[in-house]
Design a protein around this nucleic acid. Structure first.
Lengths: 234, 234
DNA sequence: CGCCTTCTTGACTCCTGTCAAGTCCCGTGG
DNA sequence: CCACGGGACTTGACAGGAGTCAAGAAGGCG
């Protein structure tokens, strides 16, 4: 796998972490890295096991999840294309990484990745900025899980998903339609709720004609303003 | 304020972020930084305002909190001596920083701090490691707020506090006593509960003779194993 | 067409929040 | 020295939101 070939055609090259690398460093990393296809539902890292790989997501959606010994599970992060994957500077990973859709990743052995990081200030800075942003996001979710009702969580979640998966200009156009890439169960895990509560809240929003559920995992936001009012802006 | 004077006697010098700086960089930072006393209850940064300062905590305890527009509040982090304070690389802070006890901090203008960071790879690396660890901690709390019962949260919280504030060798000795540095209200904000629920759970643990509450904010862990069983280890 | 998974809906329970007293603790001042 | 006052904490009664258990409907794939 040669650098030129791989990175030149990389779809996330300019937004991902390696965008900060020069050709030489990129070549180094390529020597030890590889692209990999991941099936939907496949778990590529398990909580508690050794932290072996770091990398970038090329396409697809992953969840980062933690669980109690008795099996209750909580999704602690969602990873999108161009997001960084893995835990540098730790012997073991605290969270499992599971693909919520078919996906492509670009992975490197952790030690090799750390070495590149050491030699490359720009990438380190980029990772620091990214990590700080991710921390802010995790903390925003703490407020949600600690203090918001099921209705508020669902409303906020739908708005977040609309922003990411809705058509362009989503923030303004009113009937906005998109497909949820998560099952009800996956949504429940993200929001700290049960499947039943997620389903009931969706039905309630549908009954209030704030959203429409044409079928499958498709959602149409009919009255964005109403949904935003329910989301209890932070 | 001279470098020699200030940093030489610094109580957190070897554990805090600036431990990674050489004398020259330390001198630079000192020129623009200052020590500051903070009263208990004083808020030194407000959510939504401009991110002006970064720094280190010398002594005392701070909470980082987020709130909804209608006033519900959630503590998203606790900051202890030697912890880093502030949000580099962001125009505004998302969280308020409030002293839970009288405290001393060492602060620098954000821009100056960022400049030092740019020039100093070791400090940048140290901040990255720290931020990654803080992110892990925030995610562990997501599991707690999303999936654990009030009883489990209280048990885990008491064990965490015992580890930090209990006497040496705390993990093994059985009757272990310490003072909580947080009011019931502050505990409730950390755990995503109400004051009443915190109080009731403490009373329940006391009734079960797992802890004793001799008065004030003093707690004695009488049966650590029982408390750990309730905490539902992740 | 039929099976299996996912989703919805219903009935019921229970944990936690809310509202409201009441108690304890501590510092202040008479 | 003790009464007073205010904040922090505890306790009680009650309500309601979300979880649990269970069944049924819908959707997708072989």
């Amino acid at each position: 796998m040669e650098c030129g070939h791989v990175c030149t055609g990389c779809t996330v090259r300019d937004v991902a972490l390696c965008g900060s690398l020069d050709e030489g460093a990129l070549a180094d990393l390529n020597r030890v890295g590889r692209r990999r296809h991941v099936e939907q539902g496949e778990t590529i890292a398990w909580a508690g096991e050794e932290s072996r790989t770091c990398g970038n997501i090329l396409s697809g959606l992953f969840k980062l999840s933690a669980s109690t010994t008795d099996g209750r599970e909580q999704t602690v992060g969602l990873l999108y294309p161009a997001d960084f994957l893995g835990r540098p500077y730790a012997a073991q990973t605290d969270y499992s990484v599971t693909a919520l859709s078919a996906a492509e990743v670009c992975v490197f052995p952790r030690k090799a990745f750390e070495a590149t990081l050491e030699r490359n200030g720009a990438m380190q800075r980029a990772l620091l900025r990214r990590t700080l942003a991710t921390l802010d996001e995790a903390r925003a979710r703490l407020l949600m899980l600690g203090r918001q009702s099921a209705e508020e969580r669902i409303a906020r979640f739908l708005l977040d998903m609309a922003k990411r998966f809705g058509a362009e200009g989503g923030a303004s156009v009113d009937p906005q339609t998109f497909d949820l890439p998560l099952s009800r169960g996956a949504i429940a895990d993200v929001l700290g709720l049960t499947i039943e509560t997620v389903s009931r809240q969706m039905t309630k929003l549908k009954a209030a004609r704030i959203i429409a559920l044409p079928g499958g995992r498709t959602v149409t936001i009919a009255r964005r303003a109403a949904l935003e009012a329910l989301a209890a802006e932070v």
